[in-house]
Amino acid sequence: MEMFKYVVKRILLMLLTFFIIMTLCFILVKMLPLTNLPQDPALRDIILARRELMGYNKPILVQYGIFLQRVILHWDWGIGETMYSGREVVDIFAEKLPPTILINTYSLLFSVPIGIALGIFAALKKNKWQDHVVSTGVMILVSVPSFVYAFLVQYVLSFELNLFPFQINSGTAWLSPSMFFSMIPAILSLSFGVIAGLTRFTRAELTEVLTGEYMLLARAKGLTKGQATVRHALRNAMVPILPMIIGQFISILGGSLVIEQIFGIPGVGPLYIQAINVRDYNFFMMLSAFYTFIGLAATILVDISYGFIDPRIRMGSRK
């Protein structure tokens, strides 16, 4: 029950934060001058009718009320004004979501096992040369921005070795093998950072657990080092690692703006960038809401899952 109350409280707080951010965002966007209408008269009429419906010449707060009403009751985020002429923002967004989710899921499926395995390996070989090699690699991967090694991946694998195409295949056959093949460079580029982060985290957690007194006890009771590590140390080390992975899973929805841009993935990231470049505020509002929501959701999911996985962690004690 206490847990339930905690969860509800966190979710309500999150929704409040989300609402405040969206309000500010809406006001700031509405304070900007309207974009020019397109030349096409039919499209112009549609956009004008839409703007009239959303009350574009009323005070901003009234507009916000209308906006909230449209969004909540009709899930209507407006239409594309300067891009995707006149089509529903929500429809376009739904089209762009699958590649983003897919590519990030692949990357996570690839990087989580590798990251954890490397972390365990480094922790078990602590302060030996293997550990130093892994730690140095992690240090480099964590420091270098992902788009720099995306260039490296693109240059080495796609250009020098000519193994993969420069950009992913066009079309919408997301699950076809050839599409997967063309996604590999992007998946690799996305994975390095996750692998490095996870390795570092796992190593830190596991080394701490391995020095615990109960490990000594386990060994004293006659368990072999392997048994003690797998049955006692790993389980405890997983307590903070699992929430981190859960958080990653939520963040994959947000995807990576830069990687998607570099590899020509027609996902949410390029949509956002295009919306900024042509100043389409309806798209901008929807995507801002999306990114904000993802960020907030990831944070509270991590916090809540901490509570579920390890009841010792006091409710609300984590910020």
Binding site: L13, F18, C25, L32, L257, Y272, Y291, G295, T299
Partner: peptide
């Protein structure tokens, strides 16, 4: 102040940067 910080840190940086560029 903590609430204030929480709201501020909930805004994704990329959106913040974009809004600032717009305005």
């Amino acid at each position: 102040m903590e609430r204030f910080v929480e709201i501020l840190s909930g805004v994704p940086f990329i959106i913040l940067a974009t809004l600032f560029q717009f305005h």
